[in-house]
């Protein structure tokens, strides 16, 4: 009886959250390399904008792309250990006056503008030379993996408003998790 109740709760929760969050099914990849004592990463994100997201952007809603990196020391017979975490955020907005999309890297402040949404997704899908971790913090014997969780979210739109927009495609999307070996 309890199992049925728990399953029902899960089903309802999945249905509810399923409405407000979609998962991008494309596959991305990442790789890291050492340059002057720092490990950098090149990432290919499975990013694409849904029609509703493009419509929202062109209506003036600002989006945030958040990349959450986590470097984990994968250990045999012992729990894995987190070495560090890094969050990189990009703000994407559309300027109706210039008819251009601007992408701002919130960590560096660098802003670029593009004329089409495809340029934006192309620009954000290929991130090159992102500094991840200092070599001195790592041990050569250890096995490190980088996990990248990314999501695209409409900024300044409350969860309440997103829930009340239940009939249309979600404004938020989670990208498929990417993971790779920091070094071999």
């Amino acid at each position: 009886m309890n199992r049925i109740k728990i399953r029902s709760i899960f089903l309802v929760a999945n249905l509810f959250f399923g409405l407000s969050m979609t998962v991008n099914a494309e596959v991305g990849k990442g790789s890291s390399y050492l340059d002057a004592g720092v490990y950098y990463s090149d990432i290919e994100l499975p990013l694409s904008f849904a029609q509703e997201q493009i419509k929202a952007l062109e209506s003036g809603i600002v989006f945030n792309l958040e990349l959450r990196f986590q470097i984990i020391n994968v250990r045999n017979w012992r729990p894995d250990r987190s070495i560090g975490a890094l969050t990189q955020t990009y703000t994407i907005e559309f300027n109706a006056f210039t008819r251009r999309y601007s992408v701002t890297n919130n960590n560096t402040g660098r802003q670029v503008s593009m004329s089409t949404i495809n340029e934006v997704s192309g620009y954000l899908s290929k991130i090159k030379k992102l500094p991840l971790v200092d070599d001195s913090l790592l041990s050569l014997e250890a096995n490190y993996r980088v996990f990248l969780n990314s999501n695209l979210k409409a900024r300044d739109v409350s969860q309440w408003m997103k829930t009340l927009s239940f009939w249309r495609e979600s404004l938020d999307s989670d990208l498929e998790q990417i993971q790779w070996q920091l070094f071999n």
């Binding site: 419509k55 929202a56 062109e58 209506s59 003036g60 739109v157 408003m161 009340l164 927009s165 009939w167």
Partner: peptide
């Protein structure tokens, strides 16, 4: 003003 109006129009139904 255009962005504000656009946002409100987009969120009209949920509002």
């Amino acid at each position: 003003a255009y962005a504000r109006y656009g946002t409100l129009s987009f969120m009209k139904a949920p509002i």
